[in-house]
Each structure stands twice: as C-alpha cells, then as structure tokens.
Design a binder for these strands. Structure first.
Length: 837
RNA sequence: GGGCGUUUAGCUCAGUUGGUUAGAGCAUCUGCCUUACAAGCAGAGGGUCUGCGGUUCGAGUCCGUAAACGCCCACCA
C-alpha cells in the first residue's frame, strides 16, 4: 500500500536502476516502427543547468510517449568535448595547481583533459539519472571518440577534395585570451562606451593635414594608407599624394576607394589591412602591405616601437597621451559603439590577419535553401517561425573558420613537408611529414552528430534504421551554431535531412525575466529543485508551463504547486487502492461511471492529439483539469456511494490506470510507483501500452445528464453559501438521481406545504426548491437590481442579434438555437426576479 | 538599417480552423478538520484581451497602423 503521504525522495529512489537493469531504455524492439532522437550533447565543462533539464525533459516526454505507443525508440546519449570551453577550464584548473599549459606540453595536457572529461561525464550521467531520462546508454557517444574522429576526418578530406575546404590568409576573429581563432558565431557584439580619436595626418609636401577619426588608434602602426572617396570633392585632389603616419613617421599613400564614406566621420579613413576586415579588402584592391602590429596575446609587437610589449589597451592610452602632447590629437569624441567580444572568454575580439582553414559555405548553404522548399524532405521547425532564422543564416552566410589554435579537439588531418601538403585520413608512412598543429572547431564535429553517432560513414544497421532522426530538441540560441550546420553537413554527406522535426524551446530566465548568470548569482541548480520537490514536479513544470519557442520565467512557486498536484494524484491513488480490496457485488455501469468513462475517453483523444503535435502545454492543462476536477473532485466523490459495486471499482481502476499512463512521460517516477502498487512490482508502466481512443465508449446521454447534475449541485451550494443557509434547510426535489443528490448534499428531501416560500433552482431536468428563512438584506437587494439590469441588457443584445437576418442566415444552426434558448431562459429569470420584488 | 517575438485577472501564463458567459496556477474573500488529500474541500470576487482603424452576422483570434518591452541578424573610421 502507498504511504500516507507522498514523499518524492522515496518515490524516486530505485526505479531508474531497475529500468536500466531490465534494459527498458534500449532500442531494438522487433517489428516496430523506429523513432529516434539524439541528445544535444552537453559540454563536459560543468553541471547541467535548468536549460538542460528543460531540453532533456522534453525529449524524454516524447520518447517515453512513443515507446508506450509501441515504437522502437532510440534516444541516443552523448557528451561534447567542447574544444575551447573545456580547454579554458582545464587550463584554469592547472593554473590553480601551479601548472601552466605550455610547460606541460601537448600530450600531458591532453591526458589532464581526458581526466577532466571522465569526471564531468560521470557527473552528467548522475544528473541524467536523477532527471529520469530514458537514454539508451548502450549507444552512448562522445564527440571526440575514435569513431567520431574517423567521421570528422572523412568529412574534412572529402570537403577538401571537393574544394569546399581551403586554407587561406584572411582576417579572422581572434580571441587574445585563449589565443585562438573563432568563427563569427562565437563573437558577441556589445555596445560599449569609447572614443572617436581624431588624429592629424600631415600631407607630404604641403602645409596641410588630414583629420582622421578612429576608435582604435593603437592599430596605426599597421596603417598602410589613408582612403578617401573618389567622389568626395573635399579630398579628390589628394588622391595619389602621400601622408605622414604620425609617431612612426612613415609615408603612406592617400588612395581613392569606395570604402571611404563621405558621410561617416571626417570622410577620411585610415587603412590597416592586417587588423580590420574592411581595410583588408581595401588593401587587396590596392596591393597594400599587411602589417601585423599586435601579438597573439593582445600585446603590441616590435613594430609598435616604444609601445612594444604593452597590452593593446594600455598602448592606446599611452599613445593617445603622446599624440596629444605632440599636437597630433585634434579631438576626442565620446561615443558608444558595438564591439565584438569572445563568447567564451569575454575579452574584446581582435580582427587579425592569419592563416586558417575555412569551409566554403555558399554551395552548402544553397543546398539547404533548396531542400527547405521540398515539403517532403525539409526540416520542419516547431514553432515554424524558426525556419526563417535558419534560412536567413543560409542566405547571408560566409566562409566558416574551422581551425582553432587549441590542443583539445580533433586535430586537423593535414600534413606538411617542405612546400608539400597532404590531406588524408591516415598519416603518411614516410618520414618528414609534420601534422598541422591546430584542431577543429568543436561544432565541426557536432555538426555530424545525428548520423556519425549511428555509425556513419560506415553503412551500419543503426544508420539505416534510425536516420534521419525523427526529432531534434534544442534552444533557439543554438540554431546558428548547430542546427544549421547539422543540416548542411547532413544534406551534403547523406543526401538526407538530419531530422524530420526540429523542436525549438526558449531559454529559462529568472522570475524577473533576467538571464541566469554567475555575476547576478541568480542561478538555480536543477538538482536542488529535485531534492526539494522531485524530478517529477520539475519535469511537469518545465514541459507544460509554456508553449514551445518562448522563454520561461522560472518560478519556484509553480514547482511547489506541481508538487501539490502530484500529492493529489498520490492520494487519489491511495483512495482507489484502499477500496479495490472491498467486497463487491456485480453491477452494471452507473450513470456516473459512464460519465467519467466518457470524459476519460475524450481526454485520451485530446491528449494524444496534442502529444503528437508537441503541444505539451495543452496536454498539461487537459490532464490537470481532468484529474483534479473531474476525477478527484467529482467522480471519486460520487463513487463514494458505490464502493460496493463492481462496475464502480472497475471504473476507478481503469481511469486511474489511464491517468497514470498519460502522466508517465512527464512524471516517470511517481506513476511507476503507483502502477506497481496496482499491478505488481514486476510490471512497469514504461513498457505498458498508451491508452487508445475508442469512440464506442462515448456515452453522450449520460455525459450530459451528469454534467447537469454537477451544475445543479453547484448552484444549490452557491445559494447555500450566499444566503448563509445552515444545515437545517428543507428541499424538495424533482430530479433524476435523487439519492445521489441527497448523498452529495447531505440532505434529505422534505415536502413542504407552502411552496411559495422557497427558492427554485433549475438545470434542465433537475429541479429543486430550497426552503429557508429569508432575510433580505440591502446587499441582496442591490445584487438583484444589478442582475436585473444585466439581464435586461443581455436580452436586448440577444433580441437584436436574433433579429439580424444575416446572423440567422449565416451562423450555424446550433448557435442560433442556443441563442434562442438562452434568450428564453433569461426572460424567465427576469420574470422571476420581478415577481419576487 | 532588416527581421522576429511579446503585450489577456494583482503576479506568471494558456487561449486550436473567428462562434455560448475569455481560462488555469499562485494571490484575495467566505464557509468547512466531510472516514484519499487542510500541501485539502465547498463557494465567491476579479480581466473587455496595449491604443486606433478595417474585414465580418460575429474579432482576444484575420488585415492595416501606432506604441511599449524584448530578442536575432547586419553595420559601426
């Protein structure tokens, strides 16, 4: 028997191990349609947060639902090596131990990184278990495992051979803190206060100068020209002349280029090809020299003369002071401008000329755009609007910088020997070949996740069966990094979309709508929530409280209220279990049994429909209402008078079982506990069959009849409450189910002679007269007057509506009939009120 | 500059293809320890759906427009 009180800790204790032991999570059910999801692999850098809890709970809801529907389900787990994020964390950890990455060397560092990975992957496993996720661990993968390495190399080599990967010297986004190149997606633009420094560049051979505005004076050591717009009359005559670069005293040409916008700044722009992407383009057009003046760590190099060795910002400060001293600083104008920062380290990005590997995006992106026009084979986003995000990215995309100057990651499969280059899956046998030092962007491997985890490039059975995946679930912030890249890689290498549906959820914010962040200290650890309220409560709250695609404001009160809901289910189950042991007599279904069975059937229908459309919020509200209001508050209360009848006990058990099954994808633990009380410890709800809607089980007449009874009861109770009628009142009934009504109201019918003293209550076939000592207060009078006015207005409105020929002609017949009925009852009520006054 | 989202009860959110009196949780008020549950039960009050205009017999829902808040992308000498 269930304990007297719901205890989430105890309830969630042993099931997970049991499910694992029985192999319920494993795919491979024979003669069943496959259904697959791959987990977005969490980074092995830390603890799972509420966002992970939401993301994985959604997937578990779907996979458990499909499993119960009979599908051969695969939910494939795994973790991401997260190249840059992990490398930073490991480096920090080493630092605390007094070790430096460089001193340790590549191999030793990687050993440490693998140790880190093992530890954090273990943490993640523990957290997944706490959350109750039905992951098939026999298929678990890691983005840096050997099979993945093979897939990554295969992809790299093929793209290289197809001309879609190339090495190039370009301006890339450089992170001076972690000393690596980044992709544009890893750069976050933030508005920061700064200055426009107006600097005087004297013109050679003339007594004039040009006023050049820049936000980054420290890059002037790398200036190789000044540009003006050829159409700009102010400066056109200067094109071809030379200017003197202050401090450095180097002569640089004044060139004409459309890049210079006469409306911006002073119309003159300094050209620093090695430190600005636009300037680089200008430099290419005019054959300018590219002069790198900043070191990889963000300090100035020897070309910065006396500023060499200073940090770029320190240099800026000193340089500006010197320029001012020497009269070169014309103006210092305060502005707010948008500056790129590293997603991981937070430092300002340095646009930096360097040799990197790139993926040529245009052809790959075009293929996605084309595929999205194919209704049969496109990736279907839920909500659909997120497709635009992907398509837009594909339209404007530019080449993807994939090389990273890190150690933790897939090493680029390229070898060099003198001037020769070799790109291949395996290293060259002969001596003298040196492998590229760099590793690949972590997303280069995660982009292959949906198919590489299933064995690709080998033609495996898994791949054949579970690819394309049915669903992918992730947050909208990951679309550019991951969803887009999986899509183009999948189309290119498998000729198929990676997944049929892409469910996009929002971010979890705090109660005030702010992002969770370390600096605000507003973080919530899902494990703490589970400890306090249970995984079942957390999962239900996260998956049913909002619609997909919109952000969630985390509200602990709502988790607490979910706990109450589960407690309610627990107690209702106790009630059913306690009474199933009763001595019973055979009986036909009662009307109230038929009523709840009909409601139950309709609930199955609607819940299934919304589960299939991934509208879990709707599933949540339907189940909540059905369970609490219909089953607990109404049916169980009515059933209390039939606890010796077989039909009622069977109905209680049947409906409770269905409720547990429909709840199970959301609350796996508590439903399993109760189910095993009902059917034995050796059974499991997670492999039971999901309820199937059967329209033959709809009893429409009884449904309406009992609905009337419920309204009738409520009306009488309202009257009792409003008129403060105590226990001693007399009632005469002209209604079906007299006995049930008396039981529910705890009253007994008493006939009274003077029928006029009573208050009449009518709902269709249900009529009652309540006799009580009337004390009409001022309040009552006001209330009646108010009702009278409202009735009159409503009658007028309805009469007008029904007099409208258009309405009568065009509106559905039932609606017109309803309006007529309502009008009649309103008129009747008005009459009653007038009479009583 | 381009795009998207949000705006519904005191708070947090639902609201299907336009169709009864716009829903829920929490909060509030009233009455109840009724033998599953006081973390509960029985009732009640509270919103004209951001503003304006339009389509329609009928608009929270569709169209146009304005505003506030938020997000994404691009640009930024």
């Amino acid at each position: 028997m269930l304990d007297k009180k719901y205890n989430h800790l105890k309830t969630e204790e042993n099931h997970y191990e049991n499910w694992l032991k029985k192999g319920y999570f494993e795919c491979g059910k024979k003669d069943a349609k496959p259904f697959s999801i791959v987990i977005p692999p969490p980074n092995v850098t830390g603890k799972l947060h509420l966002g992970h809890a939401l993301d994985t709970a959604l997937q578990d809801v779907i996979i458990r639902f499909k499993r119960m529907q009979g599908y051969d389900t695969l939910w494939l787990p795994g973790t991401d090596h997260a190249a840059i994020a992990t490398e930073i964390k490991v480096t920090e950890k080493l630092k605390k131990e007094g070790l430096s990455k460089r001193e340790l060397g590549r191999e030793k560092f990687l050993e440490k990184a693998w140790e880190w990975k093992e530890e954090y992957a273990q943490n993640i496993h523990n957290q997944w278990a706490k959350l109750g996720l039905s992951l098939d661990y026999t298929k678990e993968r890691f983005t840096l495992d050997d099979e993945m390495a093979f897939a990554v190399k295969t992809v790299f080599v093929k793209l290289y051979e197809d001309g879609l990967i190339y090495q190039g010297e370009k301006i890339i986004n450089w992170d001076p803190a972690s000393e690596t190149a980044l992709s544009t997606e890893e750069v976050i633009y933030k508005d920061v206060p700064g200055y426009f420094y107006h600097i005087k560049y004297p013109i050679v051979g003339e007594d004039k100068y040009l006023d050049v505005a820049t936000t980054r004076p420290e890059t002037m050591f790398g200036d190789t020209a000044l540009a003006v717009n050829p159409k700009d009359k102010r400066y056109a005559n200067l094109i071809g002349k030379k200017a003197i670069l202050p401090v450095v005293n180097r002569e640089i040409p004044i060139i004409g280029d459309i890049h210079a916008d006469p409306k911006k700044g002073t119309g003159v722009v300094k050209i620093t090809p090695a430190h600005d992407p636009n300037d680089f383009e200008v430099g290419q057009r005019h054959n300018l020299e590219n002069i790198v003046v900043i070191n990889k760590n963000g300090t100035m190099n020897e070309l910065a003369l006396k500023y060499a060795g200073l940090d770029r910002f320190e240099c800026r400060e000193k340089l500006v002071a010197d320029l001012e001293k020497e009269g070169y600083l014309l103006q210092k104008e305060a502005i707010v401008h948008s500056v790129g920062h590293s997603e991981r380290t937070g430092v300002m990005i340095e646009p930096y000329l360097s040799k990197q590997w790139f993926v040529k995006m245009r052809p790959l992106a075009d293929r996605v755009l084309k595929n999205q026009k194919d209704k049969e084979n496109k990736v279907n986003f839920v909500p659909a609007r997120y497709e635009k995000i992907m398509n837009h990215w594909m339209e404007i995309t530019y080449d993807w910088c994939i090389s990273r100057q890190l150690w933790w990651g897939h090493r680029i499969p390229v070898w060099y020997k003198d001037e020769e280059i070799y790109v291949g899956i395996n290293p060259k046998e002969e001596a003298g070949w040196v492998q590229d030092e760099d590793v690949l962007d972590t997303w280069f491997s995660s982009a292959l996740w949906p198919f590489a985890t299933l064995g690709w490039p080998l033609k495996t059975e898994l791949l054949n069966k579970y690819f394309p995946n049915d669903v992918l679930v992730t947050g909208y912030d990951i679309i550019p990094f991951w969803v887009n890249r999986m899509t183009f890689q999948s189309l290119y290498f498998t000729e198929k979309r990676p997944f049929k549906y892409c469910l996009i959820h929002g971010l979890i914010r705090d109660k005030e709508g702010r992002k969770f962040s370390k600096s605000l200290g507003n973080g919530v650890d899902p494990m703490d929530v589970i400890e306090k309220y249970g995984a079942d409560a957390l999962r239900w709250y996260l998956t049913t409280s909002t619609t997909l695609g919109t952000d969630i404001r985390y509200d602990e009160e709502k988790v607490a209220s979910t706990w109450n809901f589960i407690n309610k289910i627990w107690n209702a189950s106790r009630f059913v279990l306690l009474n199933l042991e009763n001595e019973k007599e055979a009986s036909e279904l009662q009307d109230e049994d038929k009523w709840i069975l009909t409601k139950y059937e309709k609930t199955i229908h609607d819940v299934t429909k919304f589960m299939e459309k991934f509208e879990f919020q709707n599933v949540g509200s339907i189940l909540y209402q059905f369970i609490w209001e219909d089953f607990c508050d109404s049916y169980i209360e009515m059933a209390k008078f039939n606890l010796d009848k077989e039909s009622t006990l069977n109905t209680l058990k049947e409906v409770l079982t269905g409720i547990l099954k429909m709840l199970h994808p959301f609350m796996p633990f508590v439903t399993e506990s109760i189910y095993q009380e009902l059917y034995g410890k050796e059974t499991s709800i997670m492999i039971s069959e999901y309820p199937v809607y059967d329209k033959k089980k709809i009893y429409q007449k009884e449904l309406e009849n009992i609905e009337d009874l419920r309204k009738f009861i409520t009306k009488i109770r309202t009257l009792k409450q409003e008129k403060q009628i105590g226990k001693d009142y007399k009632i005469s009934l002209n209604a079906p189910h007299k006995e049930l009504i008396e039981n529910i109201l705890k009253c007994q019918e008493q006939l009274v002679d003077d029928l006029n003293t009573g208050e009449k209550i009518t709902i269709n076939d249900y009529q009652a007269i309540i006799y009580y000592e009337k004390k009409i207060t001022e309040e009552d009078k006001l209330k009646l007057e108010k009702e009278q006015i409202e009735l009159k207005n409503s009658i007028l409105k309805r009469e007008k509506l029904l007099a409208n020929e258009n309405f009568v002609a065009k509106a559905p017949k039932e609606l017109v009939e309803q309006e007529q009925k309502k009008l009649a009852s309103e008129k009747k009520r008005l009459e009653e009120i007038c009479k009583s006054n």
